[in-house]
């Protein structure tokens, strides 16, 4: 990720589009008795816990308005 995504729960494009369900979003600013606002920057964080299942289809990168996702596959051996 170049600049980390700050509103994954509000945007959720990558989360819902990935055929491999690679991503996970979780609230990192939990307040007792109050729901976290999905639009508040930094209230949620995006993770890619199943990234070893990524096929490199690039759907998430094309959909991400923040350019927050990068994918690194080792280059083909010559």
């Amino acid at each position: 990720m170049t600049a980390p995504c700050t509103v994954p729960f509000d945007c959720k494009k990558c989360l819902q589009a990935c055929p491999q369900a690679v991503f996970l979003v979780t609230a990192v600013k939990v307040e007792r008795g109050k729901e976290t606002d999905p639009k508040e920057p930094g209230a949620y964080r995006l993770f890619a816990p199943h990234r070893d299942k990524c096929t490199g289809c690039n759907d998430c990168i094309e959909l991400c308005p923040e350019d927050a996702i990068t994918i690194n596959f080792p280059p083909l051996e010559a």
Partner: peptide, 8 residues
């Protein structure tokens, strides 16, 4: 579903 797909 909230965590894995941000499904509300």
């Amino acid at each position: 579903r909230i965590h894995n797909r941000a499904q509300e």
